[in-house]
Design a protein around this nucleic acid. Structure first.
Lengths: 214, 214
DNA sequence: TTATTTCTGAAACATTTGTTGCAAAAAAAT
DNA sequence: ATTTTTTTGCAACAAATGTTTCAGAAATAA
């Protein structure tokens, strides 16, 4: 098992992080297998670990006080959510929710290591900065979508993004779940999905949407 | 003049950055005074300097291919736009536009210094990471506003944000300018402003809106 | 099987936001 | 002073999105 963990870490991070750091990660981290559709971190939670996704994917979403949600971005294998870094260091509660999109392997790194590695390893600094930058770009892409696209376009983008991410043309969601991610209502999403089906972009089934192409 | 520059840098950054770094900043930076409503960086521009705002404020906005705009966030005295950092290092073109909101003093730091200081100074690392984190939070606040608020609420928030930032209850904008920041249309903004006036929240004048309170 | 719950489709209607076109007031230019 | 441009107000209409309500199909539970 330990051997598998080392292998995974090396596969995901070996090309980015320096060898000595990889060794430190191996000894200081805990590998967790988390099932599909589990909430790893919730809005308001204390952050005690920095999660790095090794296998699988998680989605990051935001919730307001009324319980309304909006999907922000996804994190895939080999990446981390750098936001948690500052949350950890400054003891701030999480501003977002993280939910697994599939069965995933996640590396948990205790916060004490963060600062130490930042000062010690150049490759860690680059990893963290790169993560922040990617997340910023993704947030901006989300703002673009919300601001400039109509809901039917956003819906199609949502479906193709999911398909790409999970590597399958089948989306296993109810209309209700989709409407929550896009902060719309079930009825509206059903309506727009039906239009997309008529246009020939998708076919509809119970709990399942099949894209014609990506 | 040099003395004024040193004074400014010390006032704005002296409490955050270590003394030796401040000295390096003084010798390696160029102070620029930029007039009100000037575009400092445009979408697609190459980034050659990291700007740090010493006095005044700038707004960061995004533009899509149709020329439509949306305001993302503001940067005030003592802060930087860390996004430019990665843009610089990786030679990526700017994804955003930066426009002065008032006459401002901006410190330009050549990109070569970035990496050197990141490796050399702990306080610089913290400064940059903190900047990224703040910008992320602001982007999320913007997403919240676009997603969860109706346009009339966003408009009022826009007005009070501007008032706080510039320290005045008078907003000197035309309805057209406001509609561009919020990615709406002039007619809609005029309509909503009139409603706010009827409700007693503001008074309307040509090129000027006066808030009753913040 | 039968009963119950979940999911989807559809209609009718409401609300929010956007568009077009025009007119008057204010400011700026001549 | 007169003309021109800019800014604002307003009305009528259009489009996009949201809400409510109901019904039937599909899955699940009893």
């Amino acid at each position: 098992m330990q051997k598998i963990k080392n292998q995974l870490i090396n596969d995901s991070l070996g090309y980015i992080l320096e060898e000595k750091l990889i060794q430190e990660i191996i000894t200081n981290s805990q590998l967790k297998e988390i099932d599909f559709d589990k909430v790893i971190v919730n809005v308001g939670d204390d952050m005690l670990n920095i999660p790095i996704v090794l296998k699988g994917s998680i989605k990051i979403s935001r919730e307001n006080s009324d319980g309304d949600e909006i999907l922000l971005y996804y994190i895939e294998g080999g990446d981390t959510c750098a936001m948690t870094l500052q949350c950890c260091v400054r003891n701030i509660k999480s501003e977002v929710r993280a939910t697994t999109m599939e069965k995933s392997l996640i590396l948990m790194i205790p916060i004490e290591m963060m600062e130490i590695w930042l000062n010690k390893y150049k490759s860690w600094r680059e990893f963290i900065l790169h993560s922040y930058h990617s997340r910023m770009l993704e947030l901006m892409e989300t703002i673009d979508a919300i601001t400039f696209m109509r809901l039917d376009e956003r819906l199609l983008k949502y479906l193709t993004d999911q398909a790409k991410l999970l590597g399958s043309l089948e989306i296993n969601h109810t209309h209700q779940q989709i409407s929550e991610d896009l902060h719309s209502s079930r009825v509206v999403i059903s309506r727009l999905l039906k239009q997309l089906e008529i246009k020939g972009e998708i076919t509809l089934h119970r709990n399942k949407i099949i894209l014609k192409s990506i």
